[in-house]
Design a protein around this nucleic acid. Structure first.
Length: 812
RNA sequence: GCCGAAGUGGCGGAAUGGCAGACGCGGCAGUCUCAAAAACUGUUGAGGGGCAACUCUCGUGUCGGUUCGAGUCCGACCUUCGGCACCA
């Protein structure tokens, strides 16, 4: 009885041996060309679900493929270990976050190892360990020194459930928390920010990196650059110092159509300008605005409303007196917090003017405008009218002309605005890297000196979800002395957003045990930037934006010599379950362990790659996994059966198909088309099965084909390939072998199937030599029995010939 | 509302403007078996004609267009998913 394929046994055996032999430890001093393949490290939820496999396996296959192609490949793994779930577990179940996290990591590490991926575990990093977060704090200090970290008061997003502030990027959908989907509220708080806005312009530049168009567009939209003009409106209000209100507009060509000015309710001038008889009304409106939830306020459905504050400013271009209103559709945080309202040419202003009966003069005439009132705002280009010296000018030219005129008169200037805000990094929670700053009564804000790092998280904090950091109540932590003057001082008690930890982790992998620095310069020069990075698109404007900012910031400090951390990015799709993203909190996770136990890791790996294009993801459905299992069994049986040649008449064909398969598999891996790569291997296996029935190829050709199959299979099903490679008596390890090469001459046949069409419809085919001439092909085509009835009695208009493909006879 | 991606058999999906449905699942038929499971072999888009080898018609979300030829290119629309959303 032949030996059976027992994946559980062989996988366990080889994982142990690879581990013992340090097969996957990456050497820095290997002279081969370097390749850094990285996948986003997982958050330590304590459970590896099938989605993690889907993220990690294809790039593991790619990394293995690169290795067989002679590259020295760095493919590390670690854990994003700070974050709220650990702390919530502590609050709910009384487990310390450190214990909860490290137990989760132990479990996930075991699960990750069971995938058979080629991670170099000697380089593992865990962001919540002091040896790591010491350097997260060090980077904070560097950013502080460079003026890129600052403390400021701002209206910030507050998640009432997580009891902490959130960055703009972490508020998603209809204004809900990215983590727990609780609607966020606004709070005015003093917080720490990173000055990502300083790099807004450079972050728009994606030249030199190969990133998906989709992500680039999302980042561009998020950064939200707009070119416009800042225009000064004259202000002359009794007792008010300010003599102007500045507005930002992208449409200076419409400035003659301004009939009112709108300030954000929170605008500092509102209190100063409101006339006494309007005070009560204005205050009521401001209160109403504050009571509104973020969702209500930002709803575009909501009818626009506002209040006239009784004051006026002057449109310098035509001298008109412009009433000043406040309305909640104007945001203080964008532009100047003030908007010139041109109701004829802006939808919002139009609705507002209609509601309050404000004039709507047309200043940009649509072509064929009859001079009548507008039914709706006209926002397209047109001809400038009622615009003094600019009358008759096309509005697109007017934008430039008006801006120039304003600059000449010093009434305005061209400006660029961005929607992106600075990155809010303070979190009022315990389980994060403490912000290494001290408040001294004498010296004020003082950074913790580098040699005093890390600022250790105390182990014995009280986990009360109060909305303030638990560290605030930890007296030994809070009370300290000023590093500068030695006086009594207090520590900052907020911790850092976990996205800070993940903004530099790819550097740490290059020298994970370096004790004297965040990273070893030489090692980073050796490996970075990352050649290929993969992860979910949900990080488009969070991690993937922050990490680019971080690289640019530390490059400008001279710490690294590149500004883009990831040369090539690929976003895999998401595996969903019950139409939702898998997550432990939703309770819809599919556990891969059961599948591994039943069918083996190789089957799970291969199935995930086979179900469809990697960037597509999809609903989890295990109904096809048996097909992979059957296929692996077939491979096993083919390789294990003794082969006895009965002839060699099939040699040409088996050689050709072997080379065709090498070509197809290689090209598919390069294109990351793993599903068709697997299909090609299946086809080849099916073909070998047919050959086995007749045994009509020489033993040498057969062995060569089986060996090639094993080599091509090695990245995808590393255990099965290794076992069969060993069973064939080949040299350990299959993963150290060279990737097979194909010979283009052997790929092509000397005959091909020529397709014959009549009027574009398939009517026949014939086998023709590759070298056939056009005339011969056409002649043969018309003579085909199946073609004749469609051509006879008709006039042949022309005949199309596509060499190596087809003949199309066009008849009338 | 704006931006982006995608719509192909019962299902997952394949197809440099050139044989639509590779590969796999499922189904059907068969081999093996007392039987079942497993495994293996064959078959499988829909509709029609023929005893049959076979053959015809239709068919890639909808409607148009370009082309000798369109799943693929262009235009309009519909649906689904993702992102952004009063950004002046």
């Amino acid at each position: 009885m032949a030996e059976k394929y027992k994946p559980q046994q062989i996988e366990k055996k080889w994982q142990q041996k690879w581990d013992d032999d340090k097969l996957y430890e990456t050497k820095d001093d290997d002279p081969s060309p370097k390749y850094y393949a990285l996948t986003m490290f997982p958050y330590t939820s304590g459970d590896l679900h099938i989605g993690h496999w889907y993220n990690n396996i294809p790039i593991d296959v790619y990394a293995r493929y690169k290795r067989m192609n002679g590259y020295n490949v760095l493919h590390p793994m670690g854990f994003d270990a700070f974050g709220l779930p650990a702390e919530n577990a502590a609050i709910r179940h009384g487990i310390h976050p450190f214990k909860w996290t490290m137990e989760g990591i132990d479990k996930m590490r075991r699960q990750l190892k069971s995938t058979g991926a080629m991670y170099d575990w000697s380089r593992e990093i865990i962001t919540c360990l002091p040896e790591y977060y010491k350097w997260t704090q060090w980077f904070f200090l560097k950013l502080y020194e460079a003026g890129l970290a600052y403390r400021g008061k701002a209206p910030v997003n507050w998640c009432p459930n997580c009891k902490t502030v959130l960055a703009n990027e972490q508020v998603v959908g209809e204004g809900v928390c990215e983590r727990c989907e609780t609607p966020v509220t606004r709070r005015d708080l003093e917080q720490w920010f990173f000055r990502i806005t300083k790099y807004a312009e450079e972050l728009l530049d994606f030249s030199g990196i190969d990133w998906p168009e989709r992500i680039k567009i999302m980042q561009q939209n998020w950064i939200g650059k707009s070119q416009g003009t800042e225009i000064s409106f004259g202000l002359d209000h009794p007792g008010v110092e300010e003599k102007e209100i500045r507005v930002f507009t992208t449409r200076p060509d419409t400035v003659f159509g301004v009939t009112f000015m709108v300030l954000a309710p929170e605008h500092p001038l509102v209190a100063k300008l409101t006339v006494p008889e309007k005070k009560a009304e204005v205050e009521a409106y401001i209160n109403k605005t504050h009571r509104q939830s973020e969702i209500e306020r930002l709803s575009t459905e909501k009818e626009k409303d506002g209040v006239f504050i009784g004051a006026y400013c002057t449109n310098r271009l035509n001298g008109t007196k412009v009433p000043i209103w406040i309305a909640d559709y104007v945001l203080l945080s964008y532009g100047t917090g003030a908007v010139m309202a041109v109701p004829a040419h802006d939808e919002r202003d139009f609705a507002f003017a209609k509601k309050y009966n404000l004039p709507i003069p047309v200043v940009i005439a649509p072509s064929e405008w009859d001079g009548k009132e507008l039914e709706e705002a006209y926002i397209e280009p047109g001809t400038m009218v009622n615009s003094g010296r600019f009358n008759g000018l096309p509005s697109e030219k007017g934008i430039e002309a008006v801006s120039e005129y304003l600059e000449e008169k010093e009434w305005g200037q061209r400006t660029v605005r961005y929607k992106i805000r600075d990155w809010l990094i303070s979190r009022q929670r315990y389980w994060g890297a403490p912000i290494p700053m001290v408040y001294c009564e004498k010296c004020g804000l003082v950074p913790v000196p580098e040699q005093d790092l890390p600022v250790l998280l105390p182990e014995d904090a009280e986990f009360k979800p109060t909305g303030e950091s638990p560290l605030k109540y930890h007296e030994q932590f809070v009370n300290t002395t000023c590093p500068r003057c030695g006086a009594v001082a207090k520590r900052e008690t907020d911790t850092m957003d976990t996205f800070v930890c993940s903004s530099w982790y790819y550097l740490r992998y290059c020298s994970p045990h370096e004790a004297a620095a965040a990273f070893d310069d030489e090692k980073v020069k050796l490996w970075c930037p990352v050649n290929f990075y993969t992860g979910g698109a949900e990080h488009a404007v969070m991690h993937l934006l922050y990490v680019r900012f971080f690289a640019k910031a530390i490059r400008d400090m001279g710490l690294i010599d590149f500004g883009e951390p990831f040369l090539k990015l690929f976003n895999q799709g998401t595996i969903i379950c019950d139409h939702r993203k898998m997550s432990k909190s939703r309770g819809n996770v599919v556990n891969p362990d059961d599948y591994v136990k039943e069918l083996g890791a190789d089957v799970v790996r291969t199935y995930l790659m086979f179900i469809g294009p990697w960037d597509q993801g999809g609903e989890w459905d295990d109904s096809g996994i048996s097909g992979i299992h059957r296929w692996m069994n077939r491979i096993w049986n083919l390789a294990m059966q003794e082969y006895r040649a009965t002839g060699n008449s099939g040699d040409d064909e088996i050689i050709r198909l072997t080379h065709q398969t090498i070509k197809k598999v290689t090209e598919d891996i390069e294109r990351l088309h793993f599903n068709t790569m697997v299909a090609a291997l299946m086809e080849f296996t099916n073909y070998l099965g047919k050959v086995k029935e007749t045994d009509n190829v020489s033993t040498a050709a057969w062995d060569n084909s089986i060996n090639t199959l094993l080599l091509l299979l090695a990245p995808t099903a590393p255990h099965l390939a290794e076992e069969l490679w060993a069973k064939k008596g080949k040299k350990y390890s299959v993963h150290h072998q060279d990737w097979p090469r194909w010979d283009e001459k052997l790929v092509t046949r000397d005959v091909f199937t020529l397709v014959v069409q009549v009027n574009g419809k398939l009517r026949g085919r014939l086998t023709a030599p590759v070298a056939i001439t056009e005339d011969e092909a056409k002649k043969l085509a018309v003579q085909l029995d199946k073609v004749k009835p469609f051509v006879e009695g008709k006039q042949v208009a022309k005949v199309i010939y596509v060499p190596g493909k087809l003949v199309n006879i066009v008849v009338r």
